[in-house]
Design a protein around this nucleic acid. Structure first.
Length: 280
DNA sequence: CGTACACCCTGGCCGC
DNA sequence: TGCGGCCAGGGTGTAC
């Protein structure tokens, strides 16, 4: 599930459990996720104190007290489960696909469960973080002020690829995935088929707040889910979304006065949902 | 440079 | 009840 808002929600849920805590045990239950885990993965993290949790695009970055950074990508099916007060409460048995387990010195257990194993983890020195091959070519963070119509327009200039594909490209803008691209284009009234280079001026002006709004709304929804989850414990970052177009093929457009039917098409091998009347 | 695909992996769902 | 095919929210690499 994880796109930027879900990863952000996971980071916010992890911070109170991990920040300032020491990792007492780190267990990799298999040697590889999508890629082999780095040599000495568990040993290199054991005994480290977590200084802070950050996010870049869809990557969780866990900064340790010795300058090591855990780069953590959830892939398609990655989930983070948190159990606190394990000295009082029974920890549930490990599940299939619980691949990596962190235990802190304050009796918290964090499990990374990833069925499809498209997720991965790597360790890098903080100095080399920006040069990491998976991080180096990522574009601007969409929620930063610097991401404006001018910046987006510049990156789309001359591109003939459909705007759907461009927004999915992490080098153009960071953190959007298949769902929020459809949602953003709907909110902006821009057809997913539109050639990227034509998204300039007015259209770019409209797309920026659409992207920011879609993402902040989803992060807000994730925040409420975190508050709900605090009582029950467990899975982080998964919450009920209200999508306007994603997964709504055949349903009427939700825009006032528009009764057109939401269409589903395939672009670069992935589903796109849009309103053919509202999006041009 | 762009597009189209294959690939990594597992599981749920649908139709037969 | 079983099985094959298709689908899934990510990202890389290849051929054309």
């Amino acid at each position: 599930m994880p796109e930027l808002p879900e990863v952000e929600t996971v980071c916010r849920g992890l911070a109170p459990v991990l920040k300032g805590q020491r990792l007492q045990r780190v267990i990799a239950r298999r040697p590889d996720l999508r890629f082999p885990l780095p040599d000495g993965f568990g040993q290199r993290l054991t005994g480290r104190r977590v200084e802070r949790i950050a996010r870049r695009a869809k990557y969780i970055l866990v900064h340790m007290d010795d300058g090591t950074v855990l780069i953590w990508h959830l892939g398609m099916s990655g989930r983070v489960l948190i159990y606190t007060d394990t000295h009082v409460r029974e920890t549930p048995p490990e599940q299939a696909h619980d691949h990596v387990i962190f235990e802190t010195d304050s009796d918290a257990v964090i499990r990374f469960n990833d069925t499809r194993r498209f997720g991965f983890m790597d360790l890098v020195d903080a100095d080399g973080l920006d040069d990491h091959p998976m991080i180096a070519r990522i574009g601007p963070e969409p929620l930063e002020d610097a991401f404006d119509a001018k910046a987006l327009g510049a990156r789309l200039k001359g591109k003939r690829t459909p705007i759907k594909a461009a927004l999915l490209d992490q080098g153009i803008v960071a953190g959007l995935g298949n769902i929020y691209v459809s949602e953003s284009l709907f909110r902006a009234g821009i057809s997913p088929r539109r050639s990227s280079h034509t998204v300039q001026g007015q259209r770019a002006q409209k797309l920026i707040p659409a992207i920011k709004g879609v993402l902040t709304d989803a992060i807000e929804a994730g925040g409420s889910s975190l508050r709900d989850h605090r009582q029950t414990n467990g899975e982080l970052g998964y919450f009920q979304h209200q999508f306007a177009v994603y997964g709504k093929a055949g349903e009427p457009c939700s825009n006032q006065g528009c009764n057109a039917t939401i269409q589903q098409i395939v672009q670069s091998g992935r589903s796109t949902f849009f309103c053919p009347r509202c999006q041009r």
